[in-house]
């Protein structure tokens, strides 16, 4: 029986479709077009805008690296991590999205270390899964990852 798949937070990214269809989901103001991620509910935060209810919008799939780091030590709860399993450092990437003019943080895809990254490099948002926490009962928690785009490729294989 396939494991149950649960998004780490519901509504922050697409859950169906292929890797090529994967998108982070923000919200956009119908009046001033400001974009919000994580998806802001309710009204626009632009102080000069009186726009109404924000609407869901997919974010750009590609962006450029603003900065990056890694976590050499296990973060505290509520990060889900089994203390019985030796800690594996993960990489964090802050990515600048040109169309939205904003920076979005995320973990890098598995196998991508700080040595594989450089400020200004093109990356893409891809579906990923998080480490299992204690008491997850085999459920898989889905999330988004940033992955470098291979030079000369439009995405996909990196």
């Amino acid at each position: 029986m396939p494991s149950k798949r649960i998004p780490v937070v519901a509504g922050w990214f697409t859950e169906d479709g292929t890797e090529e269809d994967f998108r982070l989901l923000g919200t956009r103001c119908p009046l001033c077009s400001s974009v919000f991620f994580p998806p802001q509910k309710g009204l626009c935060r632009n102080p000069g805008c009186t726009g109404g209810e924000l609407a869901e919008v997919p974010l750009s799939r590609h962006g450029t690296v603003w900065s990056y780091t890694d976590g050499r030590y296990r973060p505290p709860a509520p990060y889900l991590s089994d203390p019985e399993v030796p800690w594996e450092p993960y990489t964090l990437v802050a990515v600048e999205l040109a169309a939205e003019r904003m920076v979005v943080l995320g973990q890098a895809a598995p196998g991508v270390g700080v040595g594989d990254l450089a400020v200004g490099m093109t990356v893409e948002a891809v579906p990923g899964v998080m480490d299992a926490g204690p008491g997850d009962d085999g459920a898989v928690r889905t999330t988004w990852h940033w992955r470098p785009v291979a030079a000369g490729s439009s995405g996909g294989a990196a």
């Binding site: 077009s33 400001s34 919000f36 991620f37 939205e100 904003m102 943080l105």
Partner: peptide, 13 residues
């Protein structure tokens, strides 16, 4: 990008 934010504000508008 600032603690504890996951993203910055958008500078579109």
């Amino acid at each position: 990008l600032d603690l504890p934010d996951i993203a910055t504000d958008s500078a579109v508008a």
